[in-house]
Design a protein around this nucleic acid. Structure first.
Lengths: 172, 172
DNA sequence: ATATTTGGGACAGTCATGTTGACATATCTG
DNA sequence: CAGATATGTCAACATGACTGTCCCAAATAT
C-alpha cells in the first residue's frame, strides 16, 4: 500500500490541546478560524474536477446529497441545501441536461420528483468524493479516532437542535 | 444564571463515537456533512446583524480578521481571505465609507496600508463575534474540553501543511 | 541614478449563485 | 369539489467572486 499507516498514526494531534478554560475568547476564536480554514480547504479540493466539467460548488452539493440519499425528493433536497426551489431549479436543470441526475415520479405521492444519479452521475460524484475523502482521511488519520469523536461532537453542537435529526437521518 | 453549567456539562458528547474503523466511507461522509452543517449554522448566526447594517458575509470576514490582527496589511488580509485585491477592494471601500475600518501608511514599508477597526468598527465586530461565540461556546460546552482538542486537531489536519503557519500565526 | 519589482487602488465586464415575486400545473386531502 | 401541497418556470435583482487592464508610489536591484 502507498499509505500503510495513515489509519494508525503512532502519535495523534500535535495540536495545542484545549485548556480547561476552553470557553475563553481566544479558544472560541481559534475554533472559528480553524472551522473556516478547514472547511474552505476541504471544499476547494474538488474545484479542479468541477471546473473541468463546467460545474460549480452548488452542483457539487446537489450531487453529494443525491448520492447520499438516492431517491430523495426535490423538497427534501431543498431542505438539506437551505436554498429556494428557484435556485435549486437551475442546478437540477444543468445536472439533468448533462444526464448526471434523473427524476422519477414519487411512489406514494405522484407530485413528488424523486432524484437519483445516473451511472455517469455516480461516477462523477465518486471522483468528487475521492477528493474530499483524501483531505478528510488524512485529517482523521493524523488526529486519531478519539479526536474524530470530538470533531463530530463539537460540530453537531453547532447545529441547532431542531436541525439535528435531519443531519442524523443521512446516516442510514 | 440562565445557563449555569454550560462550561461544566456533566455528560459530554451524546454523539455516536467514532469506531476504530473511522476511515470507512460512512465515517468520512459523516465528517463532511457535519462540517458543512456546522459551518453554515455558525456563519448564519450573524446574518441578521449584518443585514441590518447593509453588509454581507464578505464584510464580516474582513472585519473578523482585522479585529483579530489589528494593523495587518492589505496583502496579508488578501492572503487570509483567499480572494483577489479587486474583490477585497470593494469590501474595504464599503467598510471605510461606513467608518468601520481605517488605514495607515506602513511603518517599514510606506507602500503598505495597515488596517485597523475604528471604535465603531470594533463595536460592530464585537456584536458579530458575540453571535458566533454563542454558537461555538454552546457546542464546546456540550461536547467538553477533550472534544474541543479533537475538533481542533481534525480541522488543522484539513488545512494543507503549507497553510498551517498562517492559521497558527493568528494565535498571538 | 536609473530600471525593475512590489503594494495598493481603480475601472470594466463577466460569472456563479443566491434572492423575491408571480404564475401554472398536477396531485393529494378534507 | 375546494383548498393545500409539490414542483416548475420566467423575470428581475443582489452578492461576491473572477479576469484584464492601467496607474501610482515606494522599495529594491542593477
Amino acid at each position: 500500500m502507498t499509505v500503510p499507516n495513515i489509519s494508525a498514526a503512532a502519535t495523534p494531534l500535535r495540536v495545542t490541546p484545549a485548556s480547561p478554560l476552553f470557553l475563553r475568547e481566544d479558544e472560541i476564536r481559534r475554533g472559528i478560524e480553524l472551522l473556516y480554514f478547514g472547511y474552505t480547504a476541504m471544499i476547494r479540493g474538488a474545484d479542479a474536477i468541477l471546473e473541468a466539467q463546467g460545474l460549480g460548488r452548488a452542483h457539487h452539493r446537489a450531487l453529494y446529497f443525491i448520492a447520499r440519499q438516492p431517491g430523495l425528493s426535490v423538497g427534501e433536497l431543498i431542505g438539506l441545501l437551505g436554498i429556494t426551489k428557484q435556485s435549486l431549479g437551475r442546478v437540477l436543470t444543468d445536472l439533468q441536461a448533462r444526464e448526471l441526475v434523473e427524476q422519477a415520479v414519487g411512489i406514494n405521492d405522484r407530485r413528488q420528483r424523486l432524484l437519483r444519479l445516473t451511472t455517469a452521475g455516480a461516477a462523477l460524484e465518486a471522483r468528487l468524493f475521492a477528493e474530499l475523502e483524501r483531505s478528510m482521511a488524512r485529517a482523521y488519520g493524523e488526529a486519531g479516532q478519539q479526536a474524530v469523536t470530538g470533531f463530530w461532537a463539537v460540530l453537531m453542537g453547532l447545529v441547532p437542535p431542531e436541525d439535528r435529526p435531519r443531519v442524523e437521518a443521512l446516516q442510514d
